[in-house]
Design a protein around this nucleic acid. Sequence first.
DNA 1: ATGACTCCCAGTGGGAGA
Length: 255
Amino acid sequence: MRLATWNVNSLAVRLPQVLDWLAANPVDVLALQETKLVDEKFPQAEIEAAGYAVQRYGQKTYNGVALLTRAAPATEVVRNIPGFDDEQARVLAATCGGLRVIGAYFPNGQAPDSDKFAYKLRWLAALRDWVQAELAVHPALVLMGDFNIAPEDRDVHDPVAWAGQIHCTPQERAHFQGLIEAGLVDAFRLFEQPPRSWSWWDYRNLAFRRNQGLRIDHILVSAALRPRVRACTIDKEPRRNERPSDHAPVIVELD
DNA sequence: ATGACTCCCAGTGGGAGA
């Protein structure tokens, strides 16, 4: 079984790339972030024609998430974090193929002294509490998405320049560790990986060509799933496309 | 270096992303 997460930075723009990618990489579950589409405008027919069932939760202009599932239907669908009042469409959870899958677009936070950062920290605290409760009910759980957190300095192309900046603050990293302490493991770090592995590269300044990026897109699996993890990789190919997303897909393979 | 690029909704610019 293979699952993947990809921040597509507008599904309206990136739909052909998503369909191409799924044809070449027929994962069982694909979590999308930053679809930037209200549900009525979601390209459901095109994706269903590619063999995937669709769960989507979007809004105009910003945010928006989806879960595409092949073969196994998604059930017990939850939108956003229960009990956390949020006008922003950031989370879809569903049960699929015996797994509890949470796809999430974590808040960016903009700057450490901003209201948006305070919202990010509140959101992260609510997510942790909810994930803990979900783990008690669903031991086989995957949390994946655009975390907007670089967990360690080795996840940052220039840790000195990024020190204390958004994605790299001690508060954000402590929240990432909180998810680990809740019983999840970073699937990417279960394996030896190429040095300077990133999942996002700035559109500006030839950052992709120079391989200057951050690893902020993650797949976390529960302890019960850890023995089943066979591989976790970042697929840089779509970042080489014309008009690419600034993020690359991350893929996990389970027995 | 208050930059750079891309997307969106707007409306001939500006916010947001990361």
